[in-house]
Structure formats: structure tokens, C-alpha cells
């Protein structure tokens, strides 16, 4: 009867029950949240470029904010949306919200309710900001609003005729915008805003995307894309810039900055993954070495 060999420690490590990995990831996420571990970030040039672009805009500039994402990418993208609105409101810009995703309107409303209305009570709907809402058609919508918003947007989300909205009086098409600041979780998103919006009108485009999408957009930076923010880390970098730039308003208050707070769990989760990768490879090489030795002894 053949004797069954008990697998070595290294071999067992290679086929570790995935529930152990799940447990470690869960702890890596829960512990920093429980102890409120926050990390300050240093801005990369791509993120700094967006911050500088907004700083350079004269007050009262028209900024289009297409929020093209949904709840699935909210943890990464909502902090970006909040930061953009905070920064733009501090600079007294006029905000035009719209979306190419059906879920985008609800996400817009979240930022408007939780940031704009709470922190900038002097901002008035129709005078300082307007919500145009969702229209189906993806990049087709961009193609149309290039020349005229009114073709697709006869009214805003509240049902007010677009011509009755004071801040829409001097706005016809995309060319009347000074900056397009998109936040995107997929298609249609930042890439379409560059190709069909920015390139056709010459209006600068910048924006934030999920970490997975960011590498796909690097070819457009810095030529067609003024700046790019990829994932939670970039959002945290932007929040750090805001805290530094507007220290009189924010000081060391990190409570309202979600990305900085979420970087703790992300950092620890990444470290756990790195640890598992290292352990997995050590186990792989060690068990490969031992199986070679076993093969040699059998040959002898």
C-alpha cells in the first residue's frame, strides 16, 4: 500500500484556505477604522495640476461638473467630488452639474446636500450652481451639448425651464465653460469628455477616476488632460492639498475628509496583500526546491 506523504509546511502555505486571507483583509480594514488611523499624503504632479488649475481660474468662472459614476465606486470617487466642490466654492466659481450615468444625479445630490448646502450657505441655486441632471446617450449627449445645452436640457432637475435659470442666461454650449471637471467610474466618462468635449471645444478637461481606470488615461496627460486623479490615494492627496491651502478653514480637521480617513484601511490592506505575496512566493520556491530534492532521491 502506497504511503501518503503529509504535505510540508511550505506546501500547506501554498494551498492555504482562502478564508484566512479574507480574515486578515477584514482585520486590515476594521482595525484602522476602529482606531481612526489617518495618513497625510504628498500630492503627485497629476493631482497638483488639477489643484493649480482651479486656483488659477478667476472667480466666477463656469465649471462643468459631470458626475458619471454610481454607488459601486462611491468610496473612491465621492471624496473627489466633495473636494472639487469644496475647492470650487472656496474660489467662488459657478458650478454646472450634469451626468451621463443614471446614478450620477443621486451622487450629485449627495455632494450638494452634504458639502455645498452645509458648508457654503451663501451659494444659491440658479445663481451659483445648477443641476442639469441625467440625459441618456453617453457620448452622444456630449456631442450635442458642445453646441447647445438647450437642445437636450429644456429644464433643470427641478423642472425649471432652462431659460429661467439665471446662471444659464449667458451659457449656450460647452464652449462657454472654463473647465470641465469630470468624475468617472467607467463608460461613458473622462475619456469621452476628452475626445468629444475637450478636444472639440478647446475647453480644458481634468478629472478623477477609479484606480483601475487611471492607467488607461495616462496617455492623455498632460496634453489633452490637465490633470488626473486615480483612486482613493489621489483623492487623499487632493484633500491634503486643500487642508494645506485653506488651513484657516480646515486646520487639522480631517473628520470631513473621507479619503484621508480611508487611506488607513487601504494602506494596511495593501500591506497584507504584499505580505501574502511574499509568503506565497517563498512557499512556492521552498516547496519547488524540496520537490526537486525528493525527485533526485527517488531517482537514486
Amino acid at each position: 500500500m502506497a504511503q501518503t506523504e503529509t504535505p510540508s509546511m511550505m506546501e500547506r502555505l501554498q494551498t492555504i484556505d482562502r478564508r484566512w486571507i479574507f480574515l486578515f483583509i477584514m482585520l486590515a480594514v476594521v482595525i484602522p477604522l476602529a482606531f481612526d488611523l489617518t495618513i497625510d499624503e504628498v500630492a503627485t504632479p497629476e493631482v497638483q495640476a488639477i489643484y493649480d488649475r482651479i486656483e488659477d481660474l478667476p472667480p466666477g468662472s463656469n465649471v462643468l461638473l459631470p458626475f458619471d459614476y454610481g454607488p459601486e465606486s462611491e468610496p473612491e470617487l465621492q471624496p473627489m467630488a466633495d473636494s472639487y466642490v469644496r475647492h470650487l466654492c472656496r474660489r467662488k466659481q459657478k458650478l454646472f452639474f450634469m451626468c451621463l450615468w443614471p446614478t450620477g444625479q443621486a451622487q450629485t445630490l449627495k455632494t450638494v446636500d452634504q458639502v455645498l448646502k452645509r458648508e457654503f450657505s451663501d451659494y444659491r441655486y440658479g445663481r451659483d450652481y445648477v443641476m442639469l441632471g441625467f440625459r441618456p446617450g453617453g457620448q452622444g449627449v456630449i456631442q450635442v451639448v458642445v453646441t447647445d445645452f438647450r437642445t437636450l436640457y429644456q429644464s433643470d432637475v427641478e423642472g425649471t425651464p432652462i431659460d429661467d435659470v439665471p446662471m444659464m442666461q449667458n451659457v449656450k454650449g460647452l464652449k462657454d465653460m472654463d473647465l470641465i471637471l469630470n468624475i468617472s467610474g467607467g463608460f461613458p466618462g473622462l475619456k469621452e469628455w476628452i475626445q468629444f468635449g475637450g478636444d472639440r471645444t478647446g475647453v480644458p478637461v481634468a478629472g478623477g477616476v477609479t484606480a483601475v481606470q487611471a492607467p488607461l488615461l495616462y496617455p492623455y496627460y498632460p496634453g489633452q488632460l490637465s490633470g488626473i486623479m486615480g483612486g482613493l490615494k489621489a483623492a487623499a492627496e487632493y484633500e491634503s492639498l486643500l487642508i494645506q491651502g485653506y488651513s484657516e478653514a480646515y486646520g487639522t480637521d480631517t473628520e470631513r475628509f473621507a479619503a484621508i480617513r480611508r487611506m488607513g484601511p487601504q494602506t494596511l490592506a495593501h500591506l497584507v496583500i504584499i505580505l501574502f505575496l511574499v509568503v506565497g512566493n517563498i512557499a512556492y520556491f521552498a516547496s519547488r526546491g524540496s520537490s526537486r530534492e525528493r525527485l533526485k532521491s527517488l531517482e537514486k
Partner: peptide
């Protein structure tokens, strides 16, 4: 919102498990 976020957040666990097995 919570259903969508929950489903998506499960990815973190599966990515960790898959990368442990695949990245050799």
C-alpha cells in the same frame, strides 16, 4: 446604494485571495 457598495466591496477579498494564488 448599500447593496451595490456591498457587492463591490467584496472584490477586495477576492482580489487578495486571487493575487495570493496567481502572483507566483
Amino acid at each position: 446604494l448599500p447593496l451595490s457598495a456591498t457587492t463591490f466591496s467584496l472584490l477586495a477579498f477576492f482580489v487578495a485571495s486571487a493575487s495570493y494564488r496567481a502572483f507566483r
